[in-house]
Design a protein around this nucleic acid. Structure first.
Lengths: 349, 349
DNA sequence: CTGAAAGCGCTAACAA
DNA sequence: TTGTTAGCGCTTTCAG
């Protein structure tokens, strides 16, 4: 009848009974409280072992007021960057005996808020990864979520931020291409209105302003392979010689689509990605990108959380500076070197 | 002073007081118990809203005996296949109001057991993904973990399994290459002694036995990029014309290393991977592999768990049959078509 | 239909 | 040093 015939796990009183002591003594022994007669302690431990007793984390949590768990909400568990962040965070947390509850909002902006609140209630703190919600909503939500740390997003003081410095990285990517002679660019933007996207757009603007002879056109795109692939026509029609993709996924999608059109990268079009996910060196050609230390970010997010949990107040935002990784998807602009006429349907000069 | 100045969350009695009812009435209202005077119910709901009251999941869990949480243990959160499984599982669980606790054993076999036990105690059930531990240990551990579902691993009846049929898939990969004229193979094996690895080795044996003229040499390798890259010399020295990699990561590493040696894939060596992670179509050349529906596996794992949670007993193991995906990393064996002498240092014929 | 009271399993004063 | 007892916040009999 019973689907789970295993006998109920022993409770603290079972151990107490078996060891012939009171349950508080057992509790003390289990919690390494030194004020216990070694003889008794040994007896208790033996009894516990015999019964295979482990304190119920639930009951402990209730009385202690802490769960030894932090929750992490990410916009998409399928995104390699969030995976890396999660991995870094989870391993760091584990080292300190903390567990990790994950929540995948599946890019559903509307759900993000409740998800955050719900997850937070089951844990001692919350790490919000690149929340997609509006700034005003975020700012309003955050106080009720404390302790909370933000990843790749900022809010008012009081909540720590760990992020990659996308702005300067994007600038660097632009300068790299500029140095190669490129003057006409497209930027494939991510989720419109998202904070990460706005950030990058700011960098794009800075880049524009820094060079009078530069033309960069922003194209609404997305954050995945398909988005990059779908954008191929717009990119080619734009007449740009170089494409700055929102991230590596978009870049890979674009790269693949461009190649399928019979054009060559970087000869006909230079492409740069963003993040340096572990696959960019295996694309054809290997992708020039900006390396974001996602796992370190996750680890640092835990450091901040840990500090908050210890009762400290938020520290200053931490920004990791991405590093330009030049591979083979970028090259000097054709016209600049060969002054040759475009050889393709979509003139790129 | 107080690092988290937000006032304590309201408790059920606060709501009761404000609504002028007993706390049991509040409880009833919060749990949709219909036996409550609509007028009172409304008053309670208003009070709850005003106070922004939400029942403590902890306290509920303690009394209800369930946490609405399942835990998932994976050997490596960095592995795209586990990520996909986790994603499928997490989304399916969320749909039914369940939360997901993750634990990354970081390929530390020794830790797997305790991790599983600990995670299990904080949740209502456990999903063990491709546990690396020995079969005897697994069999012994499982009963204390119920309800538990196994992914890519089997045990005695009573615990459901959801897995990919690696054996027949590997056979299919072999036959594909055989059909292209290949007769000398290397198989880059994964973690020695791991169950997944043994499974594949069995398939290799079957393949050997099926063809008298086939020579397949198993090389100890690993499960990541680097392992595949490091194996390049051994692979080339082996004289094989085709390599069966443990998974796509290994295949990509090998592919990259082979290319760096100045050899060409598939001309000088055919390579197949395993899993069809979302990056294989962007390698150079795109990788022939066997597509494993990892996200579906995760989803199905939840279905099994859900069934167990509902009190049903374990159903029969479910095996997903991978699908051969022929891309450009495999080609007819050179000698078979051109009868040409090998043109490289490491003769491949 | 509603309230009082007994736990869920554990920790932490407080006494002894 | 050890035991007794009062909660942690909630659900659920059991009376009313």
């Amino acid at each position: 009848m019973d689907p789970h015939p295993s006998t109920k796990p022993p409770k603290i009183v079972d151990v107490a009974k078996r060891a012939g002591v009171s349950l508080s003594t057992v509790s003390r022994v289990m919690n390494q409280n030194p004020t216990v007669d070694p003889v008794l302690a040994a007896r208790v431990r033996k009894a516990a072992k015999a019964l295979n007793y482990h304190a119920s984390p639930l009951a402990r949590s209730l009385v202690l007021g802490r769960t030894q768990t932090v929750s992490v909400v990410v916009p998409d568990l399928g995104n390699p960057t969030f995976q890396a962040i999660l991995r870094g965070l989870s391993r760091a947390a584990k080292r300190q005996g903390y567990h990790v509850l994950i929540a995948d909002s599946a890019e559903a902006v509307a759900e993000e808020g409740v998800l955050a609140v719900e997850s937070r209630r089951r844990s001692d703190g919350l790490v919000l990864c690149a929340p997609r919600m509006e700034q005003s909503e975020l700012d309003a939500l955050l106080p009720s979520l404390e302790p909370v740390v933000l990843v790749n997003r900022e809010s008012s003081a009081g909540v720590p931020t760990v992020a990659a410095d996308y702005r300067s990285a994007l600038r660097e990517l632009g300068e790299h291409l500029y140095g190669l002679g490129h003057r006409r660019f497209v930027f494939l933007s991510g989720v419109p209105g998202s904070a990460s996207n706005r950030n990058r757009l700011v960098a794009v603007d800075e880049f524009r302003r820094a060079h009078e002879d530069v033309d960069v056109q922003a194209l609404e795109c997305g954050v995945g392979f398909e988005d990059g692939a779908v954008a191929v026509d717009a990119v080619l029609d734009s007449g740009a010689t170089a494409a700055l993709a929102y991230n590596d996924l978009v870049a890979m999608g674009l790269l693949s689509a461009v190649t399928e059109r019979g054009l060559r990268v970087p000869d006909d079009l230079s492409i740069v990605g963003f993040d340096d996910i572990p696959f960019t060196k295996y694309t054809n050609p290997p992708l020039t990108t900006s390396s974001v230390p996602a796992e370190d970010i996750g680890e640092q997010a835990w450091v901040e959380m840990s500090s908050l949990l210890a009762g400290n107040s938020a520290r200053h935002p931490v920004y990791f500076r991405p590093r330009l990784v030049v591979r083979a998807s970028t090259a000097p602009v054709q016209g600049a070197e060969k002054a040759a006429a475009p050889m393709v349907e979509h003139p790129l000069g």
